[in-house]
């Protein structure tokens, strides 16, 4: 059970090798985390992450699932909650695929996969988690969206539109669980320098996985519905969303 400060003891990380997801788990491990389930696709990378957590006295269980296969969502949820064997305090949704916009542009297959990985699979998993957490009478859901969801742009519109779907779904999910003991927290990071973005040059206000993790953990502890990383992006995007297209397209990053 989470404590009075909102520090969870049990968690499920969907996107079990995500740098931001693991940075969040890392912070929780320094507090009260005792069991985490890592859900992902790459067995050896998941095992490496699990071993690192076990070295810190956290029980870590690996569940294999492929987010490119929307039909696997139900199984992934069942296996993850089953592996925990106790009420789940926190679900972290950190699945995401940035893609390659130039290659995605003209490819129906790649575009479909982008929407399955970034939207359909996470939303399906969250629907399954919703049922499980409401039955528990308690639990928190943390979803990693992106400021790219706020306004799509040439450089990554397929990714941005996918996150837009997940972002909107999450806000509705948050409303749907009011009064059930379950809360939902949405994080919108800016450009994060990780392996997913290593080949790109950082945009303005770029941040790091540990910094996003700090924002995310604070949001969970304080019960913040929507948080930005870094926080200033909340105000930057207030303006950017309404910028004329001619200017928007010329912005760096």
């Amino acid at each position: 059970m989470r404590d009075a400060f909102g520090q969870p003891q049990t968690a499920i990380l969907f996107g079990g090798t995500s740098e931001i997801g693991l940075a969040i788990v890392d912070r929780l491990a320094a507090a009260r985390l005792r069991h985490v389930v890592l859900v992902g696709r790459n067995p050896s990378a998941l095992e490496d992450a699990a071993s690192a957590l076990r070295a810190r006295s956290v029980t870590a269980t690996v569940v294999l699932a492929d987010a490119a296969d929307a039909a696997s969502a139900t199984d992934a949820v069942d296996q993850a909650f089953g592996a925990l064997g106790a009420p789940c305090d926190l679900v972290i949704m950190a699945v995401g695929l940035l893609g390659d916009q130039a290659a995605d542009d003209d490819s129906p297959e790649r575009t479909a996969t982008m929407f399955v990985v970034n939207t359909a699979w996470p939303a399906a998993v969250l629907a399954g988690c919703r049922a499980a957490l409401v039955a528990q009478g308690t639990g928190q859901i943390l979803v990693l969206s992106s400021v790219a969801a706020l306004r799509t742009r040439r450089a990554n519109y397929t990714y941005g539109a996918g996150k837009q779907g997940l972002d909107g779904f999450t806000l509705g999910l948050a409303e749907s669980v009011r009064g059930t003991g379950v809360t939902v927290h949405l994080i919108r990071p800016g450009f994060v320098t990780t392996k997913m973005t290593g080949h790109l040059s950082p945009a303005p206000f770029s941040t790091t996985a540990p910094a996003v993790a700090e924002v995310a953990v604070t949001a969970v502890m304080k019960g913040t519905p929507v948080a930005y990383a870094p926080g200033i992006l909340r105000y930057v995007f207030l303006g950017l969303r309404h910028l004329p297209s001619a200017l928007w397209r010329k912005l760096p990053g």
Partner: peptide, 15 residues
């Protein structure tokens, strides 16, 4: 289900 907390009003749950 009913919302419950202790006197400190932390850790709200339903039961």
């Amino acid at each position: 289900m009913e919302r419950l907390t202790g006197w400190g009003r932390t850790m709200a749950v339903q039961a």
